[in-house]
Design a binder for these strands. Structure first.
Lengths: 198, 198
DNA sequence: CAAAAAGTAAACTATCAAGTGCACTTTATC
DNA sequence: GATAAAGTGCACTTGATAGTTTACTTTTTG
């Protein structure tokens, strides 16, 4: 790999780390340069301004988020097991350092510039990419009975986020202190209590 | 009222408004002074620094949040009606301009200085102040069957917050576009599906 | 109404950080 | 190995803004 490419990556990594730790506002370009082991001039040769650097980081992050397997409804497995599998996968994402970083940086900026929110809101992450389809098929198969599938999908994901993601994002709790398996179990149980046909 | 007291309030109001609109970081003390119709020196005579001013605003906000009626379990009303009443009251709080302002300012700062989160996490707002007690009594009366009351209370409140509060806070949606009555109905329904004795 | 307390306007200091210019060195490429 | 492309270090400009000083006016209070 060329030195130039290495430097570019170093700069992005350094900025991401620093933005995460101190916020975009409180990170100086000198700090970025130092941490990236590059000169400030090189930073500016790659990224014309701090804003451009920030945008580059956001893009890189969103690309990564598109990865991850999409689960499909399977007739031969119980609905509990399948929902539990989906919840498990989602929790892995929500508690990953990577995702928390992205979230923190993006949320900080969103609160400050509302225009950004619109563009981020349109992206879909994790199980939200396929959950609607999954529930639809579970309904067709008679395993679930849901009137408003969009709403139900949100209920499921929001419950996981509320217990697992937001408390850590805002620093109310640490990832370690959260009982994920219990929360997953309760989320599935509540969902089925509401939507399993009688 | 003395001029001095008026000025103090003007300054707090102005700062609150500006912090809400542009964030603490992007609000200058000159702006605060101008908006408060006070001289900058007066601002500094009341509040020794921007940080002191910010703390004063937070304190004032938290005091206001302690207001609001606490509902108690009543034998003669159905549990649906009572939960719906609680949800309604909570939604009024969550969608109020006042609360959204507090939240936005506080959340912005929390993301930037994690120490702040701890002190805020300890405060309880809205129905969280009395919901545990309420559910406990509903269980004693045989109207509900809950194993983990703390968890159930959070489920109830988190669902409302997820659908009504966070989307507005982050600018994904406006308060107007949200169907609160439908969300309240579904929240109560889901809660009862899970916790009403068979 | 006189003294003290508080407010005012505007210029000033100090600091911090974004971004630039330049002379020079290192790395890539033909 | 010569030439171009990229990186380096450091001093510099520029702009923003927190907080202060000063000389003066207004409000409060005994």
């Amino acid at each position: 790999m060329k030195l130039s490419d290495k430097k570019r990556i170093n700069i992005l990594d350094a900025a991401e780390q620093l933005f995460f730790e101190h916020g975009v506002q409180h990170t100086t370009m000198d700090q970025v340069a130092t941490q990236a082991k590059a000169s400030k001039r090189t930073v500016y040769n790659h990224f014309a301004s701090k804003d451009v650097l920030f945008d580059a980081i956001l893009s890189r992050m969103f690309e990564e988020l598109e990865e991850g397997e999409e689960l499909v409804f399977a007739q031969h497995m119980t609905i509990e097991r399948q929902l539990t599998a989906i919840a498990n996968q989602e929790v892995v994402l929500l508690t990953s350092d990577r995702f928390l970083r992205i979230a923190k940086i993006a949320f900080m900026q969103m609160l400050q510039q509302p225009t950004l929110a619109k563009s981020i809101a349109s992206n879909q992450f994790g199980c939200m990419r396929y959950l609607h389809e999954f529930l639809q098929q579970a309904c067709v198969a008679g395993e679930l009975h849901i009137e408003d599938i969009d709403f139900a999908a949100k209920q499921f994901v929001y419950q996981l986020k509320s217990f697992i993601f937001y408390p850590v994002l805002y620093g109310f709790e640490t990832s370690i202190s959260i009982q994920t398996s219990q929360i997953i179990e309760q989320t599935v149980r509540t969902f089925l209590a509401r939507y399993r046909p009688i």
